[in-house]
């Protein structure tokens, strides 16, 4: 087995203790201006009036075949796969597209929402990010776990938030947060160049990542009209205007297609570095 087994055994309890007791402390990066002040304890509207959005993201055409990864250097990761280790960013089952970040882009301006107490988790297991795509609310603690027990570094390169690059050479957890909304914050591991993940940071709790069945839910929204955006790391973005009515669930569906492969995907908020305002050309970085 791994040469780190001994370390793992010894350290895991200590690490977990350390995380429980001591983390979330001093190193949390401060953000660039966009974050709100102290979040309110309650929802800024009468929840009895809420409605829901529910939907599916479809994929038309043939998805690219999964990429075969050379994991010979990390046998303990490779053995977690049946056959050759593979990775796919366009994950389609029965025409449904997974790992699409869907969120309310417009329509909630001026409302301050409480930060959810739970801490979403990104796990590094089998030398990949699980999940690949994840949403958090601004200032919400995000837990990054290493279950592989071998060296990963988490190199986050946002544009409006501050970056971080922390080392996790053993089974351990690290907590970070992002004070400013940002679609999306890329994370990567420089030890394993194939590892890429994306974190969507929004100023409210209405975000969702499509499941393996391509479905998403945005629940308990105030009634009103919203612009919903669906973001995919390879296929780009789509928007729809959706009306939410009290007590109802509005169905929405997005369709991405094979032809969109290689689309320019916005990554990081478009912003002018000198002004920290919207960039004049409206384009931030673009994913590779």
């Amino acid at each position: 087995m791994s040469r780190f087994l001994n370390f793992t055994k010894t350290i895991a309890p200590v690490a977990i203790l350390g995380v429980t007791v001591g983390c979330g402390g001093g190193d949390a990066p401060a953000g660039g201006g966009g974050g709100g002040d102290a979040a309110p304890a309650e929802m800024p509207f009468d929840v009895a009036t809420a409605g829901n959005i529910s939907g599916t993201v479809m994929f038309e055409g043939t998805p690219p075949p999964p990429e075969i990864l050379d994991m010979t250097s990390e046998a303990s990761c490779a053995e977690q796969y049946d056959g050759d280790p593979t990775q796919s960013f366009v994950t389609v089952a029965d025409g449904q597209l997974a790992n699409v970040f869907v969120y309310v882009k417009e329509g909630l301006e001026g409302m301050d929402f409480p930060v959810p107490a739970e801490s979403p988790l990104i796990d590094q297991a089998g030398c990949e990010y699980l999940p690949q795509v994840l949403g958090v609310m601004t200032d919400q603690p995000l837990t990054i776990r290493n279950s592989d027990g071998l060296l990963h570094n988490i190199n986050a390169s946002p544009t409006v938030n501050r970056p971080f690059n922390v080392s996790q050479p053993v089974n351990m957890e690290t907590e970070r947060n992002f004070p400013a909304p940002e679609i999306m914050v890329p994370i990567e591991c420089n030890v394993h160049g194939w590892m890429s993940g994306y974190i969507g940071v929004v100023a409210h709790p209405y975000h969702s990542v499509t499941s393996a069945a391509g479905s998403f839910d945005l629940s308990q929204l105030p009634p009103g009209e919203y612009v919903i955006e669906a973001w995919h790391s390879q296929l780009g973005t789509q928007e729809q205007t959706v009306t939410v009515t009290t007590g109802q669930t509005t169905e929405v569906s997005f369709t991405f297609s094979e032809a969109m492969a290689g689309a320019e995907v916005p990554l990081g908020e478009p912003f002018d570095p000198h002004e920290h305002g919207p960039a004049q050309d409206g384009i931030g970085r673009v994913s590779e």
Binding site: D27, N155, M172
Partner: peptide, 19 residues
């Protein structure tokens, strides 16, 4: 501190985690 903007990460979290 790590070397920001490069692949070299910070190892401060390892101290926090007690490793």
């Amino acid at each position: 501190t790590g070397l920001d903007g490069t692949p070299m990460p910070s190892f401060s979290d390892l101290l926090d985690a007690g490793f």
